Computed example of a mutant assay.
Amino acid sequence: MDGMGGTDGRVIVGVSGSLASLAALRAAAGEARRGGRELLAVIAWEPPEGEALYLRHPDREWALHWEAEARARIDRAFDEVFGGPPPGIGTRRLVVRDRPGRALCRIADRPDDLVVLGARPGRRRATRIHRHVTAHAGCAVLTVPAPTVPKGLRRALRRVTAQDFTLVGR
């Protein structure tokens, strides 16, 4: 644990590394800080080929590789949002082998927990994860929209290449 946690439930946030999940992580940290609660950041992963095929041809090294990738993604999310552990709140990072919605509902097993999810702006329909969590979570669910990118900037970002980020005059 990175600090002192509260006793009135936890703030549980789903992290994937997307812009929406980074916004959710920031909002969840704020909720945890305001309520004196512990922040649990959860990243759920499955083998890319799916569990059924993995069970037919199990490969422990392959599974360890994907678990390490998930762990690196959640660590990057904390670095991008806070520059490391968020100050002033107790945090735990959980890497869970499961479907994201099911993992979040299983972890958020207290009525005074709060689940925080990110959502892409402008989506008319909820994602499968949002539908699952809102239907099965036994606690409150907070949806945080990702920041919007202005239309002109989106167009410009589509044309950016890796060479645009190289150092000039090395």
Rank of each mutant, 00 (worst) to 15 (best):
residue 143 T to V: 14
residue 110 R to P: 10
residue 134 T to C: 09
residue 114 L to G: 03
residue 149 V to I: 13
residue 115 V to A: 00
residue 95 V to F: 06
residue 139 C to N: 01
residue 106 R to M: 14
residue 99 R to G: 07
residue 105 C to I: 11
residue 133 V to K: 00
residue 104 L to P: 11
residue 148 T to I: 09
residue 134 T to M: 09
residue 117 L to D: 00
residue 111 P to N: 13
residue 102 R to T: 15
residue 121 P to H: 08
residue 115 V to W: 01
residue 131 R to D: 08
residue 126 A to W: 09
residue 96 V to Y: 08
residue 114 L to H: 02
residue 107 I to W: 02
residue 146 A to S: 09
residue 111 P to V: 10
residue 130 H to P: 07
residue 148 T to C: 15
residue 119 A to G: 14
residue 126 A to N: 05
residue 103 A to G: 06
residue 125 R to K: 08
residue 125 R to A: 15
residue 113 D to S: 13
residue 120 R to K: 15
residue 113 D to R: 12
residue 114 L to K: 01
residue 146 A to G: 02
residue 133 V to P: 00
residue 108 A to Y: 08
residue 108 A to C: 06
residue 148 T to V: 15
residue 110 R to H: 15
residue 107 I to D: 03
residue 101 G to A: 03
residue 109 D to W: 13
residue 113 D to T: 14
residue 131 R to P: 03
residue 121 P to K: 10
residue 112 D to N: 12
residue 119 A to N: 12
residue 135 A to N: 12
residue 136 H to K: 08
residue 149 V to P: 07
residue 114 L to R: 01
residue 130 H to R: 13
residue 106 R to Q: 09
residue 101 G to W: 06
residue 124 R to F: 15
residue 96 V to K: 11
residue 117 L to C: 04
residue 121 P to S: 11
residue 142 L to I: 01
residue 109 D to E: 11
residue 120 R to N: 14
residue 95 V to W: 06
residue 94 L to W: 02
residue 139 C to K: 01
residue 143 T to A: 11
residue 119 A to I: 08
residue 103 A to R: 00
residue 98 D to N: 05
residue 116 V to A: 10
residue 125 R to P: 04
residue 141 V to G: 08
residue 148 T to D: 12
residue 105 C to E: 01
residue 105 C to W: 07
residue 138 G to E: 09
residue 147 P to N: 09
residue 102 R to Y: 13
residue 124 R to N: 12
residue 110 R to M: 12
residue 149 V to F: 09
residue 124 R to M: 13
residue 126 A to P: 03
residue 132 H to N: 04
residue 111 P to F: 08
residue 142 L to D: 00
residue 116 V to G: 11
residue 106 R to G: 13
residue 112 D to S: 04
residue 142 L to E: 02
residue 133 V to M: 00
residue 118 G to D: 04
residue 112 D to E: 12
residue 104 L to V: 07
residue 95 V to P: 11
residue 100 P to V: 01
residue 145 P to Q: 10
residue 135 A to Q: 14
residue 137 A to R: 12
residue 141 V to C: 09
residue 129 I to S: 11
residue 112 D to V: 01
residue 147 P to R: 14
residue 138 G to Y: 10
residue 110 R to I: 07
residue 129 I to H: 15
residue 120 R to T: 15
residue 103 A to S: 04
residue 144 V to G: 03
residue 127 T to C: 10
residue 102 R to Q: 14
residue 123 R to Q: 13
residue 130 H to A: 12
residue 118 G to S: 03
residue 100 P to Y: 01
residue 96 V to F: 06
residue 108 A to V: 12
residue 139 C to V: 02
residue 109 D to Y: 10
residue 123 R to W: 11
residue 136 H to Y: 08
residue 113 D to L: 15
